[in-house]
Amino acid sequence: MASQRALFVIDIQNELIRDPETRIANPERITQASEEILKVARSILDLNSSGTSRASPALLVFVQHEESPPEGTMLRGSKPWELFFPPRESRDDEILVAKTTRDTFASNPDLAARLRNKGISELVVLGLQSECCVEATCMGALAAGFGVTLLSGAHSTYDSDEKKAVQIEREVQLRLSTRGARIVPWEKEISTWA
């Protein structure tokens, strides 16, 4: 089976992107980047259902975080928990993965094997929050032996008391690059898919 890539869309959920009280910094940048990335990935999948190029994703993985009260408000079935960009139904090349920890692989011990069974050897990652679930999932993927490409400009988080979100994003990118992840501007990455 040929080596393929999966696009991981991590935790782009209503609470983090829509709600004015709880949304991350730069929600417009994230929704615009994600929309364009998904549009390109889906158009390639739709045109080339018999197989994608080595550069483009062969599988779209939508990761959805869920919490339990009193720790959080992203409760299964609630509006805050819903995905802003849901997977298309009845598609083998778009899957939903639930998680309860920051690391998608820790929440889903069989995920690495499922991806390998589909020929996936590399993940291309975007989503929320940079220093939490995005970084932890990238680290989990690297530990499981997958290649990782993080799309700069397509992940974000909250401003902290000490740092702006963009500074935290850059720090996450630096940490992941020292661990072996590729950091690529999302516009440059999708230009290689077609």
Rank of each mutant, 00 (worst) to 15 (best):
N26E: 15
R116H: 12
K39G: 01
T52K: 15
L151V: 08
Y158G: 03
E21S: 07
A55R: 11
S43V: 04
N48S: 15
F85I: 08
P69L: 15
F62S: 08
L128P: 00
T73S: 10
E15F: 07
A6Q: 12
A136Y: 13
R182A: 15
R182F: 07
W193A: 11
A25G: 11
E15N: 11
V125D: 14
I95E: 10
L60K: 05
V61P: 12
E66T: 11
S130D: 08
K99R: 13
A143I: 01
S53N: 01
T101A: 05
G147C: 10
K118C: 09
W193H: 10
S34T: 15
L142Q: 00
A194V: 11
I168C: 05
G153A: 06
E169I: 14
I10H: 10
L176A: 14
E21L: 07
E21Y: 01
D103N: 15
P27E: 09
E28C: 05
G51M: 01
D11Y: 12
L150V: 15
V125W: 11
F85R: 07
S68P: 00
S3R: 13
R116A: 13
S78K: 04
T137L: 14
A98E: 01
S3W: 08
P20D: 05
I10N: 12
L126P: 08
D161A: 12
F84W: 05
G127A: 07
R23V: 09
L128V: 14
N14H: 02
T178V: 09
A165T: 02
L115G: 11
L123P: 07
P109D: 05
I190S: 05
K163N: 12
P80E: 02
E135P: 01
L60N: 06
R5A: 10
G140L: 02
T73H: 03
S160A: 03
N26L: 14
Q13M: 13
R114P: 00
I190R: 00
E135C: 08
P80W: 02
W81K: 03
T104C: 14
A143Y: 02
T137V: 14
A143P: 02
E89F: 05
I168K: 00
A136K: 14
E189S: 10
V172C: 11
T22G: 06
R91I: 06
I12M: 13
D103P: 10
L174S: 12
E28N: 09
W193I: 07
N117I: 01
L83A: 00
P80A: 01
T178H: 06
M74D: 05
E89T: 01
D92N: 10
R170V: 04
R116G: 12
L38H: 08
E21A: 10
Q129P: 06
E66K: 10
C138G: 09
S56G: 13
A55F: 11
P80Y: 01
A2Q: 12
D19Q: 01
G77P: 03
L47N: 15
Y158Q: 08
E122S: 15
Y158A: 01
A106Y: 03
R88N: 03
I12E: 04
Q173P: 01
L150H: 03
T101F: 04
A25W: 06
E169L: 06
A181F: 09
L75E: 10
I30D: 02
L75K: 10
A181M: 09
E162P: 06
N26T: 02
I10R: 00
T52N: 15
P70I: 03
P80K: 00
S56C: 10
M74C: 07
E28T: 12
L142S: 07
K39M: 03
F146P: 13
